[in-house]
């Protein structure tokens, strides 16, 4: 028996919004520690990793490990039927071929349940080593979204360059060149408005705008986003999910042919 109840159901709605453009199907791996998802997009350029810890749920029961393969477009359609203040419960029997989503209004006067077929997905899991990154940049998530949106008008790629002075985002194309520089903030009233840079060595990497734009669908999840970079390895773009987990996107860089 698997059952996970989340009073703050809108977190789950937001997680799905942040995945559905990048992935069409994926497996949710459930264990007594929580729920995890790892999947690459169809072209294997990016990878998404989601963690929802058991202690972040208001009720969590998972008697035996199970992997629930889901069509994320269908799951997203179902979660859109939940109101933002609904309590969401996900339920499945052991070795079941379907999953049930229950949406309760806060006053318990409306209860809806939706059943969805599970899929058998044979997905490749990648081992992601713990890495000390050369540069770790934290900035407001909305600012990052705006930068990527603005620079996407200029070309297909964004160059992210981090030095101790700050971080620079650049794009070039037929209409010209765009550069956006962010300095580390000296002092801010609110922590979530800060730009902070922890740098061991300067790093410059080039990434496809298309994917960065899809990652910014997670902006609704958290006030801040963390970018971790090292020379010639995938970028990590991380958004926290409340205090129960995270969505991490990994993006393979573009390198000299």
């Amino acid at each position: 028996m698997f059952e996970a109840r989340l009073v703050q159901g809108n977190l789950l709605k937001k997680v799905l919004e942040s995945l559905k453009d990048l992935l069409t199907e994926a497996s949710w791996d459930c264990a007594d520690t929580g729920i995890q998802l790892q999947a690459m997009d169809n072209s294997h350029v990016s990878l998404v990793s989601v963690q929802l810890r058991a202690d972040g749920f208001d009720k969590f029961r998972c008697d035996r490990q199970l992997s629930m393969g889901m069509n994320l477009t269908s799951m997203s359609k179902i979660l859109r039927c939940a109101a933002n203040d609904d309590i969401i419960t996900i339920k499945a029997q052991d070795q079941a071929d379907n999953v049930t989503f229950v949406f309760e209004s806060p006053n318990q006067e409306k209860v809806a349940d939706y059943e969805m077929k599970l899929m058998n997905l044979d997905q490749e899991h990648l081992g992601i080593p713990e890495t000390d990154y050369a540069a770790v940049i934290k900035l407001p998530a909305a600012e990052f979204q705006r930068i990527i949106k603005d620079l996407s008008q200029f070309g297909e790629s964004v160059v992210i360059s981090c030095t101790k002075e700050g971080v620079k985002f650049s794009a070039a194309g037929d209409i010209g060149v765009g550069n956006i520089k962010l300095a580390q903030t000296a002092s801010v009233d609110k922590e979530e408005e800060a730009v902070t840079i922890e740098m061991q060595e300067p790093v410059t990497l080039t990434f496809a705008c298309r994917y960065l734009n899809m990652f910014t669908k997670a902006t609704c999840l958290a006030p801040q986003v963390t970018l971790s970079m090292s020379p010639e390895v995938p970028l990590v773009v991380e958004y926290k999910i409340g205090d129960m987990g995270h969505v991490r996107y990994y993006l393979a860089p573009k390198i000299e042919d």
Binding site: M40, S43, H44, V45, S46, L47, E124, H125, L126, G127, I128, P129, S157, T206, A208, V233, P234, Y250, A252, P253, K254, I255, E256, D257
Partner: peptide, 14 residues
């Protein structure tokens, strides 16, 4: 010109 790399180029399957 720069070429897009693949995720499997960096991380191995488990």
């Amino acid at each position: 010109s720069k070429k897009q790399t693949s995720m499997t180029h960096f991380f191995a399957g488990t």
